[in-house]
């Protein structure tokens, strides 16, 4: 018996480890993570904490934190009509764009997933908006919406419809920006959804056909469940994108008319870089952060249950 214990002790890894040995794994992992940690700290975490810090201050004309005011910036925002308008516009904008982008790109992806002659051409066309910068696309739409030489109003004129004040009326401006955004984002969503569709095994459709399942039965029982991880991803990304839309607003309306398109990110930009009120701008940014965070958490909580992971 003693012999056995001796042997065990001899071959056993010594139980007493010092701190250096204990943290070996941690140190290795930090070494591997360090490039990411450094980059994130410099470009994400530091600005984030600075933003939270600034949101409790009023800044002087040079943008330095000058006076600690506690929650005044937040209280002011929650009380201001312009902030309420901006919130309403942001939510309406998400409502206009997110479902449309997901549905339209899903529809286009279904079409482009059919095996037909020359389908490659259509796939290229449908993804083409992805290759355009926000600025370039917004300028194209600026000319389409132009009050004097705009193509859209000219076409409406041929049909005998009075010109629509696309970017000049507060009721139309948000719709116009939403149309631009939908057009811009379809390319990316289309590509991702098409990729998801092509990942679905053909065997499933074959056996379904043998069992006599029709097109729509296949669509709802095979395609959508198997595509749900992709759709979920696209939904979250589109939501976040819509909350962060900036370029098209800056180029098309500059937040006007009558603040109808003053989406929250644009309001932040105006506060910070035109008015030099970094305090209120930071408070807006913090509110935006919690909105996006909350929304993403909610989506994970409620929608993820319906997502079918293989």
């Amino acid at each position: 018996m003693n012999e056995v214990m001796e042997k065990i002790e001899r071959y056993q890894v010594p139980k007493k480890e010092n701190l250096w040995q204990k943290t070996a794994n941690l140190r290795t992992s930090i070494l591997y993570l360090s490039p990411a940690i450094v980059l994130f700290s410099v470009f994400v975490f530091y600005p984030m904490f600075k933003t939270v810090y600034l949101s409790f201050f009023l800044t002087d004309a040079r943008g330095n934190a000058a006076l600690f005011v506690g929650l005044e910036n937040y209280l002011y925002l929650f009380d201001s009509t312009s902030f309420k308008k901006s919130m309403k516009a942001t939510w309406l904008f998400a409502l206009y764009t997110v479902p449309s982008i997901v549905l339209i790109s899903f529809f286009l992806a279904l079409l482009a997933n059919e095996k037909l002659r020359g389908i490659g051409f259509f796939r290229t066309i449908f993804t083409s908006t992805m290759g355009m910068s926000v600025a370039a696309s917004a300028v194209i739409w600026l000319f389409l919406f132009h009050p004097t030489v705009g193509v859209l109003n000219t076409l409406l004129g041929y049909l005998g419809i009075r010109p629509i004040p696309w970017l000049l009326d507060s009721k139309w401006a948000l719709v116009s920006i939403a149309i631009t955004t939908i057009w811009m984002n379809i390319g990316f969503s289309f590509l991702i959804i098409l990729g998801g569709l092509q990942n679905i095994s053909q065997d499933l459709y074959e056996s379904a056909r043998i069992d006599g399942a029709g097109y729509f039965y296949q669509l709802f029982r095979i395609t959508i469940p198997l595509l749900s991880p992709t759709l979920f991803f696209i939904l979250i990304i589109t939501f976040i994108n819509s909350f962060q839309s900036f370029g098209q607003v800056d180029i098309l309306t500059k937040g006007g008319p009558a603040e109808a398109t003053n989406l929250i990110v644009y309001a932040i930009y105006q506060d910070a870089f035109i008015n030099y009120q970094f305090g209120t701008a930071s408070a807006r940014a913090v509110i935006l952060f919690f909105m996006v965070l909350g929304l993403t958490l909610l989506q994970f909580k409620f929608l993820e249950k319906k997502v079918h992971y293989q």
């Binding site: 132009h146 009050p147 970017l167 000049l168």
Partner: peptide, 10 residues
Amino acid sequence: FGRSWDDARA
């Protein structure tokens, strides 16, 4: 005609 100088000129 909006906030754009060019649009009013046009």
